[in-house]
Simulated scan of single mutants.
Amino acid sequence: MYEVKATQGGSGRFELGESEVRAAQQHAGNDRWRLLMVTNALTPGRMDIRMLPNPYAKRGRGRYREEGGSLRFSHQL
């Protein structure tokens, strides 16, 4: 399962909805849930796509910062 998030700029901020959080938590112990981040999505020459670890998985811990509650995160590219 892939969750895709996109930004117009280079920001590392994204939000996960309630069902997305549940899926990420459910699959925190395996690699079945992954996050694809598309930055600069509206600028073809600058667009970048990265696969990020599940925020709730062991590999994702410490790489994200919760912002404004448990559903908004930011990451460092």
Results as ranks from 00 to 15, higher is better:
70 S>V: 05
51 M>K: 15
68 G>C: 06
46 R>V: 03
53 P>H: 01
75 H>M: 01
73 F>N: 01
23 A>C: 09
45 G>V: 12
69 G>E: 05
37 M>C: 09
22 R>I: 14
38 V>D: 09
47 M>N: 04
70 S>W: 11
4 V>E: 00
52 L>P: 11
67 E>L: 10
35 L>Q: 01
74 S>I: 06
20 E>G: 07
7 T>L: 06
74 S>W: 04
38 V>S: 04
25 Q>F: 09
30 N>M: 04
71 L>F: 15
60 G>Y: 00
31 D>C: 07
36 L>P: 03
33 W>C: 05
35 L>A: 00
29 G>D: 15
15 E>W: 10
36 L>K: 01
15 E>D: 08
59 R>Y: 09
29 G>F: 12
37 M>V: 10
50 R>H: 01
71 L>N: 08
71 L>C: 12
12 G>Y: 01
26 Q>S: 13
48 D>Q: 12
11 S>E: 07
23 A>E: 15
74 S>M: 03
39 T>V: 03
48 D>P: 13
25 Q>A: 11
7 T>A: 08
20 E>F: 11
13 R>F: 11
67 E>M: 14
77 L>I: 09
55 P>G: 00
51 M>T: 15
53 P>F: 01
40 N>Y: 15
66 E>V: 10
34 R>M: 14
1 M>D: 12
20 E>K: 08
